[in-house]
Nucleic acid binder design. Structure first.
Lengths: 123, 123
DNA sequence: TCCATATTTTGATAAATCACAAAATATGGA
DNA sequence: TCCATATTTTGTGATTTATCAAAATATGGA
């Protein structure tokens, strides 16, 4: 991932409606959601949502597929991983133990806490 | 982490100079770098850099400490982790295996590839 | 105290971004 | 084909953001 692409992704997420859209799509997984449902769930007008969805799509954070009259959007989680890698690239100049990022829960764990255990507190 | 804070962090990173600053500080680890060196390394004017550094600091992405006449900035990697967790919260509605995020290298691994092993099997 | 260095703050202009309304495009069914 | 539904595109005004120059603040040493 190059800087230009990273900026596009970050800028796409740095907006209230778009961040909400993305997180909603992350929750809905590969199945995704039609634009209409997203608009309804978030209470934004269809035209405004469409604007934001295209921003997210241009940044590669969501993908779309048509299903009849609806267009289903879903999150591209892999791009998020790339973004993370880019942001934290070569941390501590090859001595990652210095920043302690490996010692505590990594992003995926924070992302997907197992629904079975609730008493999950990070010390 | 709340949405407001996440937006602030994302917006702070969604800018060329600031993203470069942050990644430079990630590389320099807890030791950090004085503002002057950052300005020189990136070729931005001190006043402009100061503006960007305060944006990053307000977002909690960097911290500063004084060392004589210099002010040393360093990256707050922990905040990045929180941000990741927030962005990918409850992915796939409790079925993270669906998006495959757990199966490949997580963000920290991408961040800090162990210098010893390179065998990274991503399908 | 006085001066040089390091950094931040202020002020102003140019550019980018957001939200809404209205019109346009695409699909499915009668 | 014609119409209703779903989504996108276009146009506009208001807000935000980035950059530079100049002034202000803070620290260390003579």
């Amino acid at each position: 991932m190059e800087q230009k692409h990273a900026i596009a992704a970050l800028a796409a997420l740095a907006q209230d409606s778009r961040l909400a859209v993305f997180r909603l799509l992350v929750r809905s997984g590969p199945a995704g959601l039609p634009a209409g449902e997203i608009a309804q769930a978030l209470g934004v007008q269809p035209a405004t949502l469409s604007f934001h969805l295209s921003q997210l799509a241009n940044a590669g954070l969501v993908e779309s597929r048509r299903d009849g009259r609806s267009i289903i959007y879903s999150a591209e989680v892999a791009v998020m991983k790339e973004l993370m890698g880019f942001l934290l690239h070569d941390c501590c100049d090859g001595h990652p133990e210095l920043c302690g990022i490996l010692e505590t829960a990594p992003a995926p764990a924070a992302c997907c806490p197992p629904s079975t255990s609730k008493g999950n507190r990070t010390s």
